[in-house]
């Protein structure tokens, strides 16, 4: 959090309302370029909405988002994507009727705006990084859940992100699959790609995140070292209610 010179993504005073419903209530957030941040919180806490505001899927009702020293609040998702701020989705949506490779190729050529040869190389590299070379020529709709999640990741990587926003990418995987996914994400960390990861499955998240943020009812209620955050009585109360006060 210190060394603001290194801050790559920041959000200040973010509010988001849907009609009368306040989903994000005055969120302040900042992260360094090489951080890996996990976001947890009970259902309806506003995690996915925060990610959408950061990625540019929709604008906040109030507040500003800055990325790489520039105000991007008004920029749509595609423009932020070209700046290197890329997001994956909770439910993987591969283009069906295309192979795995073509899916990633499309992301590389359109998302990153690369020329054909360059996009080809980038797509190949992303598939390799995600361990998907073996299924590169399979049609995307025939992939299993782990491979779909990896494809989602590979598509995001092909855009050459500096910062990845991951939305519940571990949900529904078996233990073995989850640890394979964790290995892939650890590899991204080695390549200095910053990560913001929303995940319900806390113990998977804790293997990657160096900093944990817990949200509840549209606010950040805890932020810091993962084990400390998970032991915070406020956090336990947000999940399990009541509790010894």
């Amino acid at each position: 959090m210190d060394g603001s010179a290194n801050v790559i993504l920041s959000a200040a005073g973010i509010h988001k309302r849907f009609g009368a419903l306040v989903v994000l209530d005055d969120i302040d957030f900042a992260m360094n370029a090489d951080e890996a941040i996990g976001i947890v919180g009970p259902n309806g806490a506003g995690k996915t909405t925060l990610l959408s505001v950061l990625s540019g899927a929709f604008p906040p009702s109030a507040g500003t988002v800055a990325f790489r020293d520039g105000d991007v609040t008004a920029l749509p998702a595609t423009a932020r994507c070209r700046l290197g701020l890329v997001r994956t989705h909770q439910v993987p949506k591969p283009f069906s009727g295309m192979t795995t490779f073509e899916n990633v190729f499309v992301a590389a050529s359109h998302g990153a705006g690369l020329g054909r040869d360059e996009a080809y190389e980038e797509a190949l590299a992303s598939l390799k990084l995600c361990g998907m070379l073996g299924v590169a020529n399979r049609r995307a709709e025939t992939l299993g859940l782990l491979d779909r999640k990896r494809l989602e990741l590979a598509r995001a990587l092909a855009v050459r992100p500096t910062l990845l926003l991951l939305d519940e990418i571990g949900g529904g995987l078996t233990d073995g699959e989850a640890s394979e996914l964790v290995d892939t994400i650890k590899e991204l960390r080695r390549r200095k790609i910053g990560i913001v990861w929303i995940e319900h499955i806390v113990h998977i998240l804790l293997q990657v995140a160096e900093r944990l943020i817990c949200m509840d009812a549209g606010k950040i209620i805890a932020d810091g070292e993962p084990q400390t955050v998970m032991a915070d009585p406020e956090v336990v109360r947000a999940y399990l209610g009541g509790g010894p006060k």
């Binding site: 113990h203 804790l206 293997q207 160096e210 084990q227 999940y239 399990l240």
Partner: peptide, 14 residues
């Protein structure tokens, strides 16, 4: 049990 913190993985936090 709720957070899965009793598992082996909990010990290997970076």
């Amino acid at each position: 049990a709720y957070f899965g913190l009793h598992r082996k993985s909990a010990g290997s936090v970076p």
